[in-house]
């Protein structure tokens, strides 16, 4: 039962966390039998996403897909929870407590895979 609850939560969490309108994609990444880096496949299946990441600061610094999105299978999260930002950006995450940011997470402002600093997009 406990396990089931947990799985349920993991499936739902990433989608409804979104303040921006989420796309109609499944939140679970299929299990893949690979030890290669994510971008090897995703260069083929979602080239625009990989390119946006690659050209971003995260791409330049090699902050790779799994840092934000978790790994494959049920561990995958489509929209990263702030707990995945806190490792490097803990002061920024702390600032979310400011009433100005009520109802927002990091990606409400730092949109897409470009994650440009201080450019509003994607959210309402």
């Amino acid at each position: 039962m406990k396990a089931r609850l947990l799985v349920g939560l993991l499936v739902v969490l990433p989608l409804v966390l979104a303040a921006a309108p989420p796309k109609k994609t499944r939140a679970v990444h299929p299990q893949v039998d690979t030890q290669e880096a994510c971008d090897v496949c995703h260069r083929e299946v979602t080239p625009e996403v990989v390119e946006a990441w690659y050209q971003s600061r995260h791409g330049l610094m090699n902050v790779k897909c799994f840092v934000c999105h978790g790994t494959v299978g049920p561990e995958f999260v489509r929209r990263a929870p702030v707990s995945r930002c806190v490792g490097c950006h803990n002061d920024k995450v702390d600032s979310l407590a400011n009433p100005f940011f009520k109802g927002k997470d990091c990606f409400s402002c730092h949109a897409g895979h470009e994650l440009n600093p201080h450019k509003i997009g994607g959210g309402k």
């Binding site: 609850l5 349920g8 939560l9 499936v11 739902v12 969490l13 989608l15 409804v16 966390l17 979104a18 303040a19 921006a20 309108p21 989420p22 109609k24 939140a27 009520k102 109802g103 927002k104 997470d105 309402k124």
Partner: peptide
């Protein structure tokens, strides 16, 4: 779970006043 997701998506898409829908518990 899928219907729950769909409901939340719909809410966010259709209601300008709503900024976020956060699950606190799923049973």
């Amino acid at each position: 779970g899928e219907a729950l997701e769909a409901w939340a998506e719909e809410l966010l898409r259709d209601d300008e006043r709503i900024l976020g829908v956060y699950p606190t518990f799923v049973g």
